[in-house]
């Protein structure tokens, strides 16, 4: 069992290390968000490169919080997969459908015969 009493050495060192990484990532995000460098405005796969960077950094932070702080790394494979995979697959599906539809509605507004700005 992963959590037997008395089997626990202190993890404080790891916790502070993860906190440092989380802080650095957040600072990088905020600096990028304020400066918004021109070079990162290029479009890569339907979105600005800058937005991709934000999303990847966010997923990295989410991974650190779940694995280190919520101790997902210590759980069994079964529990880990039933929680993480379920979430990831459903969220990816939802995002795909809704963002595609949103873009479609945008096109309808833009190319339709009705004026929305009057």
């Amino acid at each position: 069992m992963a959590h037997e009493v008395g089997h626990h050495e202190s993890n404080t060192k790891r916790i502070w290390k993860v906190f440092t990484i989380l802080s650095i990532v957040t600072i990088v995000e905020v600096i990028l968000g304020i400066i918004k460098p021109e070079a990162l405005n290029a479009k890569v796969a339907f979105m600005k490169l800058l937005n991709w960077i934000f999303i990847i950094l966010t997923l990295y932070k989410a991974y650190l919080i779940t694995w280190a702080f919520m101790h997902m790394e210590g759980e069994t494979k079964g529990l880990r997969r039933s929680v993480v995979w379920t979430g990831i697959f459903l969220i990816c599906y939802l995002m795909f459908i809704l963002l595609t539809e949103g873009d479609y509605v945008f096109e309808v507004y833009k190319n339709g015969y009705k004026s929305w700005d009057f």
Partner: peptide
């Protein structure tokens, strides 16, 4: 994620 996806929907709808 449902809320955030709905936010994404509206944002893509008014992307400009």
């Amino acid at each position: 994620s449902g809320f955030l996806a709905a936010y994404g929907f509206s944002r893509f709808k008014f992307i400009n």
